[in-house]
């Protein structure tokens, strides 16, 4: 079982991704949705869970972008980071974004929207 944290400034995409996770055969321990990356970061800093958490992070967000979030995430204690598996989930098809994403060791994969149950299933196979 996994926890899920979805970070996206677009409410629609939050709901869609949440629904896709709910519909997947693997039951989720919890699904948490954040409209703002900074709130998600605060949450990660202050809560601990016995389950590994899958982070789905949008890139282009106001105030704190997905890249800004990863910068901060990489500064967290190694034992905190070990509990999370990070994925970018974006509508960007920009090669520069992909290139920039490579510099974050904690980032596992670069996924493109729309988020579907199929994508989730193949994502889970890689873990």
């Amino acid at each position: 079982m996994f926890n899920y944290i979805i970070i996206d400034d677009n409410k629609i995409d939050l709901l869609v991704a949440g629904k896709a996770i709910e519909m997947c055969q693997n039951p989720a321990a919890s699904i948490q949705q954040f409209l703002s990356a900074s709130f998600a970061l605060e949450h990660i800093k202050s809560f601990q869970s016995p389950y590994t958490t899958i982070l789905l992070i949008d890139i282009q967000m106001p105030v704190m972008s997905g890249f800004d979030f990863m910068e901060e995430f990489e500064k967290l204690a190694p034992e905190t980071r070990a509990n999370y598996i990070c994925f970018f989930l974006t509508s960007s098809s920009n090669d520069l974004d992909r290139l920039k994403a490579q510099k974050y060791p904690s980032l596992k994969q670069f996924l493109t929207k729309p988020f579907t149950t199929d994508k989730l299933i193949s994502l889970l196979k890689t873990i």
């Binding site: 995409d13 869609v16 509508s91 929207k113 729309p114």
Partner: peptide, 19 residues
């Protein structure tokens, strides 16, 4: 990004309905 965003939302929602 801003034009693709809503389209991807639509496709995502469609996918949920279909599956």
């Amino acid at each position: 990004h801003d034009m693709k965003g809503p389209l991807m939302s639509i496709l995502g929602a469609m996918n949920i309905v279909n599956t």
